[in-house]
């Protein structure tokens, strides 16, 4: 009814700009070896294919530029697309890289943002003087059993009070605590946080991984099976320690 709407004193706007904050994974590059990047990216994605499918990603080349390592932006975005990710920004690029990105319709972000992988908390944190304890606000608490076929993803820490069944998968960008039997797959530090740890009160996991360094059930030593343990990384090696 066009006549009706014309009678209205004001036109209702068809759009509006609002400010919103998104948590987007950042791919921080430490090498300009495209073959290695391709291979390692594929491996990472294999760990949680569903999660990464069509996920937006910002790639960060700051470190490369510090070391004067040049990288072909077009080829790099090709690799990212091929991995099933959607690049939505470049960070820390030089003038030439930024121009190339814009040519490819990829926005340019300023490098001043925190590079930490845990920095997906609201913008306001920048201003607030005392940084809040990191885990607390972004901890996901699960009280029900995680059953076979289920998948839980936490963008911070993950605490599970019930059992995690064989065939279930739990992932966290931070630490994972399971105060029960852990039979499924558990991945901590999935975006590369090598400081992340896994704690559980009865280890029977099918796979454990921290920042992409993993062990499957078969590799687990009998001495730590069915025990309360913590798992952490030491120079790319998973250390599993009895904490009884």
């Amino acid at each position: 009814m066009p006549t009706d709407s014309q009678k209205k004193p004001y036109n209702v706007p068809a759009l509006e700009f609002k400010s919103s904050t998104f948590a987007v994974p950042v791919l921080v590059l430490a090498s300009n070896d495209l073959t290695a990047i391709d291979e390692q990216l594929q491996n990472k994605i294999q760990l949680a294919p569903d999660f990464f499918k069509n996920s937006p990603v910002v790639f960060d080349v700051q470190e490369l530029n510090k070391q004067n390592l040049d990288i072909d932006i077009a080829e790099l975005t090709g690799i990212i697309y091929k991995a099933g990710l959607l690049p939505i920004g470049i960070r820390g690029g030089d003038q030439q890289q930024n121009n190339k990105a814009l040519e490819l319709l990829i926005p340019v972000y300023s490098p001043h943002h925190s590079v930490s992988t845990e920095a997906n908390k609201p913008e306001t944190q920048k201003q607030s003087p005392p940084p809040a304890p990191k885990a607390a606000s972004s901890t996901l608490l699960i009280t029900q059993p995680v059953r076979s076929g289920q998948r839980i993803y936490a963008s911070g820490d993950l605490i599970v009070l019930a059992q995690v069944s064989a065939g279930a998968e739990i992932l966290a960008e931070g630490n994972v605590h399971v105060y029960n039997t852990l039979r499924g797959r558990v991945l901590a530090g999935v975006l590369g946080n090598t400081e992340a740890r896994i704690f559980c009160s009865d280890l029977q996991a099918e796979l454990i991984s921290i920042a992409g360094n993993y062990k499957v059930s078969e590799d687990l030593n009998e001495s730590i099976r069915n025990k309360p343990v913590q798992v952490y990384l030491q120079e790319h090696t998973l250390i599993i320690k009895d904490i009884a």
């Binding site: 029900q144 059993p145 995680v146 059953r147 076979s148 076929g149 289920q150 069944s165 064989a166 065939g167």
Partner: peptide, 23 residues
């Protein structure tokens, strides 16, 4: 194992789960 899988579906793909009612 299959029962465990079904239990997962009961707690996530049922009407009660979708409408956030008592499980």
């Amino acid at each position: 194992r299959d029962s465990d899988r079904m239990l997962g579906l009961l707690s996530s793909k049922s009407r009660r789960a979708e409408q956030n009612e008592e499980p």
